[in-house]
Design a protein around this nucleic acid. Structure first.
Lengths: 339, 339
DNA sequence: TTGAAAGCGCTACCAT
DNA sequence: ATGGTAGCGCTTTCAA
């Protein structure tokens, strides 16, 4: 079933059917109803590929994430997809799985589908791949890892402010011995958080004790390992700030296993506010970064570039917000602390 | 940049370039290297839409889920996408959000993209929509809600066996007062679980006490509400089986809030083994249903139908498995139980 | 092994 | 307001 058959049945030209379908050009009411009847009768659905070819527009945005099963992403993907559908666009979702090879394949898919823009929500994107997209005039929006330029936008998460909120929260609870479990060293957004932690402490007149900055990997297991290191320290911290929620959850679990009470003995703060965090026992105090808002800005950036003709890249800043739950409490008095 | 320009640069016809690209037909080594050089030089990427139109095959499978942010799905989506990429297929992901209207839109998208098959991993699919797909000869695979037929496969989860494993586990711990928190009444897979629970108890010579089958909604909130009802009962159960993990987590949280210890006072079992479950405190004993395997079967069904020409639908059964964690323990002696 | 050319289904421009 | 028709970029016969 194609447009020609529909046209024949309706007794009009294919052009008219096309016009009824797109609704862009006025069509006589009678003609339109004849066409609609023919469409109804034949169960005709236009071929999106042919439409793409004819019009030269794919109406598709690419969405590249590192791991769709990572709790940070599903909500982001969902919001992005919803926006796309609302704007009659399609989404081509691609998972890099943190693999350079798969990442390259993802970009290839984007190119072959002639997407109208790409949201790159992963940090493992080799510059030459970005070049390839960019050279073809494809609008791009990065999460956290991009430099704004022509057709290139970026969404920055306000890590500094977020970390500040967390540290202020902890110091207001009288904590001074605050440790940090950092993320992967090669992840830009992770080092930003680490540095923000250090400078926030400095602003509060606290200096980082030796061994208080601990290596994690943004996964639960890394948090657990970091916590055992921290607990083995001759002088333990009274509070721990983590580079992300998954890390904090690992820390929480390790604390539980070691018989350390949270928040009575030690306070823990995460970062991201993934759904899981509110469900932990105790529920995790954390810094929320709205995934819905990230998705909205990403879509806005691409849509503006592709449909609004906005060539100038924009830098969006996503606010962060302290979510106080049960994993933080007053600093225990010195006498009570364990060795 | 299109195939004609590449052909011109390589000094061959477009047909030859096409043959090099597809690799289906033998091409002289020298010719091929000329073509490859031209492709390299021009940075040419074939237009997938044009390719689709020319060949009449979309190489795309649709994947319809009810809510990608529901913890059950991300891993399923990820596995499915991975398989597709490995087989050089594309995936068109669509979220119904449990909305009939959005569901209809999802199907329309599938049709317009001329997908080679659809995996319907949601139960809210109106029969007439299935008809529309089916009439066009599009292979379909359902999760749990389908009837096998021509070009229609189904993946059944072995709920009965899973529930049996759970009940046997509980009775071996001497539990006899076992309650069940069921899922939505209109969800076929939920009623199967409920019925399996009842018959499993019967097999064990236990009869269901009044008020021991409680309404949930497959969400955390439903589990919490059900638990308060259960705790208000004059005679409380010593163990609770839940229709899914999210429900069990709600029950767990409600228990915690009410000061009921798990598993000392009460044992809890979930169903699905979503990632969250192992992270709860205490970690949830549950019945695992492998999402990876569901994805693999779904892909297999569609690929076999679309590429292997297998018209006969297949019913796949996904095994279930007991995962013993910390939310279940021996039945407390009668004297210890609270009113 | 290669080339020429007829579509694939639709859009958009040019007429009328 | 409507029809005719030339592409869009590729695949796939058919010939050579």
């Amino acid at each position: 079933m194609n447009i020609r058959e529909v046209a024949k049945i309706a007794g009009v030209s294919t052009a008219t059917v096309s016009r009824v379908l797109s609704g862009s050009v006025p069509v006589d009411a009678k003609t339109e109803s004849k066409v609609r009847a023919a469409i109804e009768k034949t169960g005709y659905y236009p071929n999106s590929h042919a439409r793409m070819l004819g019009s030269g527009k794919s109406n598709t945005y690419g969405l590249i994430v590192s791991d769709i099963a990572n709790p940070f992403f599903p909500e982001l993907v969902k919001s992005f997809e919803r926006l796309a559908v609302e704007h009659n666009q399609e989404v081509l979702i691609a998972n890099t799985d943190y693999h350079p090879e798969r990442t390259e394949h993802c970009v290839r898919r984007m190119l072959e589908h002639k997407v109208d823009g790409v949201a790159i929500m992963t940090s493992e994107m080799a510059p030459h791949l970005i070049q390839i997209l960019s050279k073809r005039g494809i609008p791009i929006v990065f999460l956290d890892t991009g430099t704004v330029g022509r057709l290139i936008s970026n969404i920055s998460i306000d890590y500094e402010h977020g970390i500040d909120l967390a540290i202020n929260h902890l110091t207001s609870l009288k904590h001074r011995e605050i440790a940090f479990v950092e993320g992967p060293r090669d992840l830009k957004s992770a080092t930003i958080r680490r540095d923000a932690f250090v400078s926030s402490l400095k602003r509060n007149g606290i200096k980082v004790a030796p061994g208080f900055i601990c290596q994690g990997n943004h996964g639960i297991d890394g948090g657990q390992r970091a916590m055992s290191e921290l607990l083995a320290l001759p002088k333990r911290p009274t509070a721990i700030m983590c580079s992300n929620d998954l890390t904090a959850i690992g820390v929480l679990i390790a604390a539980h296993v070691a018989g350390v009470r949270v928040p009575q003995d030690i306070s823990i703060v995460g970062f991201d506010d993934i759904e899981l965090s509110s469900l932990m026992q105790p529920a995790l105090t954390t810094i929320r970064v709205s995934r819905t808002e990230i998705a909205a800005r990403a879509f806005e950036a691409l849509y503006g570039a592709a449909h609004g003709g906005i060539e100038k890249g924009i830098n969006y800043t996503i606010p962060s917000e302290l979510i106080e739950r049960q994993s933080t409490g007053p600093c225990p008095p010195k006498s009570v602390r364990k060795a």
